[in-house]
Simulated scan of single mutants.
Amino acid sequence: MTWAECSMDKIAIAILNFNGSGFLKKFLPSVIENSPEATIYVIDNKSTDDSVEVLLAQFPAVNAILLDSNGGYSQGYNEGLKQIEAEYYVLLNSDVEVTPNWLQPIITMMDADETIAAAQPKILSYHEKDSFEYAGAGGGFIDTLGYPFCRGRLFLSLEKDEGQYDDVHRIFWATGACMFVRAKHFKQHGPLDEDFFAHMEEIDLCWRLNNAGLKVMYNGHSAVYHVGGGTLHKSNPRKTYLNFRNGLALLYKNYLRWELWIKLPIRLMLDIVACIKFMLFDSFSDGLAVLKAHYHFLLDLPSNYKKRKRINQRVVGGEYAPIYRKSVVLEYFIKQRKKYRELTPDSSNTR
């Protein structure tokens, strides 16, 4: 069901909501105030709180798309975006505070280069506004074993924002917390993988965009503030499960065959090391979540094999290779390099 008329927008901001009434009250006013050039949509994932009532009563200018079930981040956006016609989609988490002129730098950049398929702004912490936020920070990358990291964030180490990433830079993935994507490329290379439910589906999409020869960009002249953990806290075993299961599916779907045979066993071994560490020193429940993730990854192999066959795997390279061809695990845990700029330079990657 939609309360919006079907018309072609230049920019459509799509906010996915599930039981986020408090976030809508707190953050939607900043989106409305600072986005006069955009049409705003809230896609509700069958909330059981008063989200819909709040939306219709307090924000009548916002277009509501009401879904019949909660299929997670991926299905929610896939279904909601089918009802939105626009040149650019901006996928925005409900727990994000936007700033004045946050849209224009990125839209201007994308208008000037048709090969840019997706982009993100600088993602700062809502609670510590001088620090980068976990989900996206200064732009996302993956290492040779498929571990995601960001400029401004390696694993749980977050950098202070001192202007070091106030630039425009090609990246490997743009965060789903605030992701600008050209609608025609989303339709051509999407949708988001609904089996992921939540977490890493944006990396999976961006991998396909990179494989198609398209660019994913970061623009530090735009900034937003993200609460983070609005749906699942970072210490939640459910989040651990999704990250480990989806991380393996991500690699299985997208690696070249020779990479898969060499690197997937290494990744599986490192996951087991992480599992043991969780159980002995951190959270036994998180350790069990890793084992559950591996079990379901094996059960899902037939389905993921069919997806893999449909994807055009190729070496992402050329003048710029957005995959870091070293191990960020080795750099961080063994060499104790806690900041992006401390990583050993990758000769295949202009950083």
Results as ranks from 00 to 15, higher is better:
E53W: 00
L28G: 15
K25H: 06
K26F: 05
S47Y: 04
N45K: 01
D50F: 00
N19V: 02
N45E: 01
N17W: 15
D44M: 07
D44H: 12
L24T: 12
S35G: 05
V31G: 04
T48C: 08
I43L: 02
D50C: 08
G22M: 11
L28P: 15
N19C: 09
G20E: 10
K26L: 06
K26I: 01
E37I: 01
S30M: 11
N17T: 09
L28N: 14
S35R: 07
V52T: 06
I32F: 03
N45R: 02
I40W: 08
S47I: 09
D49F: 03
G20P: 00
A38L: 10
P29F: 05
P29T: 10
T39S: 11
V42C: 13
E33L: 02
F27M: 04
F23M: 05
E53G: 06
K25M: 01
I43M: 01
E37T: 03
S35W: 15
A38N: 13
N17F: 14
P29L: 14
N45L: 01
E37F: 06
L24V: 14
V31D: 08
S30R: 06
I40E: 05
I32M: 06
L28H: 08
T48N: 10
L16P: 09
S51V: 07
S51G: 08
Y41M: 03
T48S: 10
G22E: 14
K46Q: 09
I43K: 01
I40F: 12
V52N: 09
K25G: 03
P29I: 13
V54M: 02
D50Y: 00
I43F: 11
L28R: 11
K26T: 07
K46E: 09
S51D: 07
N34W: 04
L28Y: 01
V31R: 10
D49T: 06
F23W: 04
G20W: 02
D49M: 04
K25S: 05
E53V: 12
S47W: 03
